[in-house]
Design a binder for these strands. Structure first.
Lengths: 120, 120
DNA sequence: GTTTAACTCTTGCGACACAAGGTATGTTCA
DNA sequence: TGAACATACCTTGTGTCGCAAGAGTTAAAC
């Protein structure tokens, strides 16, 4: 029913690689990832997405994690990109390039100038 | 299990608008849409996608359809873009522009040169 | 008439983003 | 002290939608 979910569908299959891309610049903890993805825009709305996703990424060996407990701050679980993740990110870059290229091409198709309207 | 499905997820939310874009250049029937989307590349693999989708698009008022029965050919159901569909296609173009821009930006992030490895 | 291809459609499944809700820890401020 | 709040983590259930598989119909081919 809720049709606000248009962009939700677009995110499918993309959020994971985006996290990998983020992590390629350094380790981060969960909430931080949520915030940064939101800052980029249109990329994530909920923690309910990111935690299960991080688990899956870790299961797939694309990220690793370790707890960091300091006296001055809450315990946080930091995620880092693994070599596998780095390689898969590269593969995704190519996939995305091709895919978004195809979509872009199609979206630029010029509507037929004179649409022959069928008579009433 | 099947991991070939990586790009399947990417297609989510995109195939519908792509069909609208196709139809913006003229009416088409189902199988024809399948073929043309496949020709563009990475955009559709199965009729099991397109027919239910066309039903949804019609329910949403974005396309209309009519049967064309001629003596010389099999009966075909032709789909045409409606005004609603044309408007929604325009909206999607903007959504896609923003979304793919965000993803593209993220994917271009440069990995930190010297990854400070945490000591053991 | 039987086969084959073109065209239509349906069913069931799986992946995954998300909202909602739940727990634990630290900080703030009466 | 202790209530209230923010930060941080995680789980459960739901809905969407692309897809494989399969089925029915019509026309052409042999």
């Amino acid at each position: 029913m809720v049709e606000s979910a248009a962009s939700t569908q677009l995110r499918r299959g993309v959020v994971g690689p985006c996290i990998l891309a983020l992590l390629s610049t350094g380790p981060r903890f969960g909430l931080q990832i949520v915030r940064e993805l939101n800052d980029v825009g249109q990329l994530l709305t909920s923690q309910g997405t990111v935690y299960p996703l991080l688990s899956r990424l870790q299961e797939a060996g694309q990220v690793s994690s370790h707890w960091e407990v300091s006296d001055s701050e809450r315990p946080r679980r930091y995620y880092s990109l693994t070599d596998v993740g780095r390689r898969d990110l590269e593969l995704f870059r190519e996939d995305w390039r091709q895919f978004s290229g195809s979509v872009g091409t199609l979206l630029q198709t010029i509507p037929s100038a004179s649409t022959e309207s069928e008579q009433s």
